[in-house]
Simulated assay, not measured.
Amino acid sequence: MKDTVEPRSLKSIFAIGIATGFFYASGMALFDYLDGSTFHIYKFLFHFIFFGFFMAIAFRKKVTKK
């Protein structure tokens, strides 16, 4: 079987970045909460933006098997 690489649409890349960034930042905020720390919006935004950005870059191509 051969793998094919297809570019994703810009809308799809943004959706992936927003979803992964939100879930990662929420998980880190939950971990801090369970550890006894207070919620920091700047830390949440940092995790949301940077993790979402790098995951959007990582998933900008769609690999499928044919």
Rank of each mutant, 00 (worst) to 15 (best):
Phe44Cys: 07
Leu10Trp: 05
Tyr33Thr: 04
Thr20Val: 09
Ile41Gly: 08
Phe51Lys: 00
Phe46Val: 10
Gly27Arg: 03
Asp35Trp: 04
Phe39Gln: 11
Phe53Asp: 05
Ile18Thr: 03
Phe59Ile: 08
Thr38Phe: 08
Ala29Cys: 04
Ile57Pro: 00
Ile16Pro: 12
Phe46Ala: 08
Ser12Gln: 14
His47Ser: 10
Phe54His: 01
Arg60Gly: 05
Lys11Tyr: 01
Phe14Thr: 10
Ala56Leu: 13
Thr64Lys: 15
Glu6Arg: 15
Tyr42Gly: 10
Phe53Ser: 14
His47Ala: 14
Ser26Trp: 07
Thr38Val: 10
Gly21Pro: 12
Gly52Arg: 01
Lys62His: 11
Asp35Cys: 05
Ala19Gly: 02
Phe44Asn: 04
Thr64Met: 13
Ala19Gln: 09
Ile18Asp: 00
Tyr42Asp: 12
Leu34Ser: 06
Ser26Tyr: 09
Ser9Pro: 00
Ser12Met: 12
Ser12Ile: 04
Phe23Asn: 02
Lys2Leu: 15
Thr20Cys: 06
Phe39Lys: 08
Phe44Thr: 06
Ala25His: 03
Phe23Asp: 01
Leu30Pro: 03
Arg8Pro: 02
Lys65Tyr: 13
Leu34Met: 09
Tyr33Glu: 06
Phe48Val: 07
Phe31Thr: 11
Val63Cys: 02
Val5His: 08
Gly36Asn: 10
Leu34Thr: 05
Lys61Glu: 12
Lys65Thr: 15
Ala29Asn: 05
Met28Asp: 01
Gly17Trp: 04
Met28Thr: 05
Lys2Gly: 04
Ala19Asp: 05
Lys65Trp: 13
Thr4Trp: 10
Met1Thr: 11
Phe54Pro: 00
Ala19Val: 14
Arg8Thr: 02
Phe31Tyr: 12
Phe48Gly: 01
Thr20Lys: 03
Lys43Pro: 00
Leu10Ala: 08
Thr4Leu: 14
Lys11Cys: 00
Phe22Arg: 08
Val63Asn: 00
Tyr42Lys: 13
Val63Pro: 00
Lys61Asp: 12
Ala56Ile: 13
Phe53Leu: 15
Asp32Arg: 02
Ser37Asn: 15
Lys65Ile: 15
Arg60Pro: 04
Phe22Met: 13
Gly21Asn: 02
Phe46Asp: 03
Leu45Phe: 06
Lys62Ser: 06
Ala56Phe: 09
Ala58Asn: 01
Leu34Tyr: 06
Phe14Leu: 15
Leu45Lys: 05
Arg8Gln: 03
Ala58Gln: 00
Ser9Thr: 12
Phe54Met: 10
Ile49Gln: 02
Phe44Val: 06
Met55Gln: 11
Leu34Cys: 07
Phe39Met: 13
Ile57Arg: 00
Thr64Ile: 14
Ala29Leu: 06
Thr64Ser: 13
Leu10Thr: 11
Lys43His: 09
His47Arg: 06
Ser9Ile: 05
Pro7Asp: 11
Ser12Pro: 03
Thr38Ala: 11
Arg60Glu: 08
Gly17Lys: 07
Ile13Tyr: 00
Phe53Gly: 14
Phe22Tyr: 14
Ser26Pro: 05
Glu6Trp: 14
Phe54Glu: 03
Gly36Trp: 07
Phe54Leu: 14
Ala56Gln: 11
Ala25Pro: 13
